[in-house]
Structure formats: structure tokens, C-alpha cells
């Protein structure tokens, strides 16, 4: 019966899992902010570019149980992927001295994963996002233990089917 606060504290007790950024400079590389003043024809639309979705390749994704203070290139296939080895309950990898236990998570049927990136080259009046990768599954990593059936991710991924039911039109009747 862990209370909200307890759960919070437990999570809060993990900061040792925070990993220093490999390249702090990259994290600073913000783009210049766009002036909001220039009103687009239809304000506030961000278009997903269809050709980018067609061109996007399957990409391996890992959701890590730690916060990495960095955005940008990482030598995943050099240092992370080769270290993955089979364990009794699934893949295991040692990452920055901590043991991670992985689990393959498949997206709900009828759903597809996209990695989207905003393309800033065209200016604020024509905002677009590009798909830079697709996925139909990813590896969910737990810290020191496998995520298991109670992982909140599994509940999250059961939301689409419930949402579909909630938002389906109601059955017509003859009244």
C-alpha cells in the first residue's frame, strides 16, 4: 500500500541513475526562438510531412530507466547494443555501472511508432514535422529488475483501445 508520496520518494531516490551528459555543449545548442508575431495562414498548424513518413526507416528504440541530460548523437551501437546479453528473464545490460533488465514492448495492433522532428528551415508560417524513424516495438529497460507485467507502460499502451471505445459514436436506436 505504498502511498503516492512514498512512491514519489522511491522514485526520487534514484537520482544516482542520472547520467552526466557526454557532451554538454550539444545540450546547449538551442535553436533561436521563432517570433510568434508572424501569423501563418492557418495559425497554429504543424504539418506532418507525408513523404518523410514514407521514407522513414525502422529504428531501434530503447527506453532507459535513467535521465540522460543530453540530446544528440550517441554511439549506441558501439557501446550499448554489443553489451546486451541474454539473461534469465530477458536481455540484460550493464550501463554506467548499473544493471538494466530489458523487455521487448510491442505497440498495440493498428498503431505505429514515429520519431518526429520539427523542421525549422521553412520559417514559422509553414511549420512542419518530419518523421525521422519508425518503430513497431521498443525495448523497455528496468533498473536492476525487469519492468514486468505491472510496468505502467503496459497500462499506458492499453489506453488506445479504451480511448477508441470511449470515443466511438454511440449506437443509434429507433427512439
Amino acid at each position: 500500500m505504498g502511498s503516492h508520496a512514498e512512491r514519489k520518494r522511491r522514485d526520487g531516490a534514484q537520482p544516482s541513475a542520472r547520467v552526466p551528459s557526454a557532451s554538454p555543449a550539444a545540450a546547449h545548442a538551442h535553436r533561436e526562438s521563432m517570433p510568434d508575431g508572424a501569423a501563418p495562414a492557418v495559425p497554429g498548424l504543424i504539418r506532418l510531412q507525408p513523404s518523410s513518413v514514407r521514407a522513414a526507416a525502422q529504428t531501434p528504440l530503447h527506453l532507459l530507466p535513467c535521465e540522460i541530460q543530453h540530446n544528440g548523437p550517441a554511439a549506441v551501437s558501439r557501446f550499448f547494443s554489443p553489451a546486451i546479453r541474454p539473461g534469465s528473464s530477458g536481455p540484460v545490460v550493464s550501463f554506467r555501472g548499473r544493471s538494466l533488465h530489458g523487455e521487448e514492448v510491442t505497440l498495440p495492433s493498428g498503431y505505429m511508432g514515429l520519431v518526429l522532428r520539427e523542421d525549422k528551415s521553412e520559417g514559422p508560417e509553414d511549420r512542419t514535422v518530419q518523421a525521422i524513424g519508425t518503430f513497431s516495438c521498443f525495448t523497455l529497460w528496468g533498473l536492476e529488475a525487469p519492468p514486468g507485467p505491472n510496468a505502467r507502460m503496459h497500462r499506458a499502451l492499453s489506453w488506445p483501445s479504451l480511448a477508441t471505445a470511449i470515443h466511438a459514436p454511440v449506437a443509434e436506436e429507433d427512439d
Binding site: Q14, L61, P65, H70, N71, P73, A74, G133, R152, A156
Partner: peptide
């Protein structure tokens, strides 16, 4: 959907 202390490896990149 967000849980604290999580980041992505996406291909050969990391996303905070």
C-alpha cells in the same frame, strides 16, 4: 505518458 528519470536511445542518438 511520462515517468520520471527516463530517456530514449533512438538509433544512434540519445533523447533526454
Amino acid at each position: 505518458f511520462h515517468e520520471e528519470f527516463h530517456s530514449w536511445f533512438i538509433g544512434q542518438t540519445v533523447q533526454h
